[in-house]
């Protein structure tokens, strides 16, 4: 083997290492091969059997959704659609997508071609890749964006006129006072959120998205035209029924939904691989088990970011759908 080939091979090995390490560094579990992890399909079946539930009320008379909620769990949105075991951060798992029933994101033909182009030029070492190694998830850089914020563990706090969602490293403030959305010319990674109560459900409309985030680490994208409508509802005392409808006629053929349960922290009902609030291995003293502790993800991954760029990965600046 010539030195040149060896050098290229070691470079590729580093590329693989970087991409595989990034999700692990961001708090993901390393998975052995095992049975398919539950997500939307299993939850829809479980939910259909649950008796009706009336949530407690806050002193202000709103449904009381407060408390700390574990994340979606499973492979932590590494791969959104139904898939078999791919590698040790991507175990077999059901789709997050509850509608359409086939669990696939209903891209327009143009958008599907774009999505497949990204998938084929990842550097995951998966079958079908072109080997170009052009794309890496924006999530690898520890940025916060929607709807991924809502997939992870956080606490809900309700106040008159607004709802707050608090996590280890970020937050959302969702006005529920009926204020109008801001101009769609103003774009944000987390968009802007406007909430309202419909019966026992907190409905949150997210607009002004900059379209630069991914739903997972395989290039499932939205655009700056996308609108997300979240529905937060208690299915029982310790289970949040989280549903998000994604609308964007410029890249999807129809609105589609993701739906999965979020379990109340500490109730022991989380799916396997749940993202919990504090890393239990880091918190030896149980007094601190429910505290949010700083993770310094961006600060701690500065070197990974530098290496990823030096290997030639592209920055994902969003898609421009055809007119």
């Amino acid at each position: 083997m010539s030195r040149r080939v060896a050098a290229i091979e070691s470079l590729l090995a580093i590329a693989l290492l970087v991409v595989l390490l990034v999700p692990v560094a961001a708090g993901q579990t390393v998975w052995p091969k095992g049975p398919k992890l539950p997500m939307a399909k299993t939850w829809l079946a479980e939910k259909a059997k649950l008796p009706p539930y009336t949530p407690p009320r806050t002193p202000g008379g709103e449904p009381d959704l407060q408390g700390i909620w574990d994340g979606a769990g499973g492979d932590n949105n590494s791969y959104l659609e139904d898939h078999e075991y791919l590698d040790d951060t991507t175990p077999a798992q059901e789709s997050f997508v509850s509608d359409p029933p086939d669990g696939k994101i209903p891209y327009t033909p143009w958008a599907l071609a774009k999505r497949m182009e990204i998938l084929r030029s990842l550097a995951r070492g998966w079958p079908g890749e072109t080997g170009e190694r052009l794309h890496v998830s924006p999530g690898s850089f520890c940025l916060d964006y929607m709807p991924v914020f809502s997939f992870d563990a956080h606490e809900i706090v309700q106040k008159p006129g607004y709802v707050v969602m608090l996590s280890n490293e970020a937050y959302r403030v969702i006005p529920t006072d009926g204020r109008s959305a801001i101009s769609q010319n103003a774009k944000f990674w987390l968009g802007t959120s406007r909430g309202r109560w419909e019966g026992n459900t907190l409905v949150v409309e997210v607009t002004s998205l900059n379209g630069k985030g991914w739903f997972d680490s395989t290039g499932q994208f939205y655009s700056e035209n996308t609108r997300m409508i979240e529905r937060w509802r208690l299915a029982d005392a310790n289970t949040m029924d989280y549903e998000v409808t994604v609308e964007d006629p410029t890249i999807y053929t129809r609105p589609w939904k993701m739906n999965f349960p979020r379990r109340r922290a500490g109730t022991g009902r989380g799916p396997r691989g749940v993202t919990a609030v504090s890393d239990p291995t880091a918190v030896e003293d149980q007094r601190y088990a429910k505290e949010f502790w700083e993770t310094g993800c961006y600060e701690g991954n500065a070197h990974t970011i530098e290496v990823t760029r030096s290997l030639g990965f592209k920055w994902f600046s969003g898609v421009t759908p055809p007119k």
Binding site: F141, L143, F188, K212, I305, E306, R309, S310, W315, S317
Partner: peptide, 28 residues
């Protein structure tokens, strides 16, 4: 009055990443 966002790290990453001449990451 409400908080919006100033994602300093995201704006900086995009600016430097997409500038081929940038040496920001090496120097950081």
């Amino acid at each position: 009055a409400e908080l919006f966002e100033y994602e300093c790290n995201a704006y900086l990453l995009e600016q430097e990443w997409t500038n081929p001449a940038s040496t920001f990451f090496e120097k950081r």
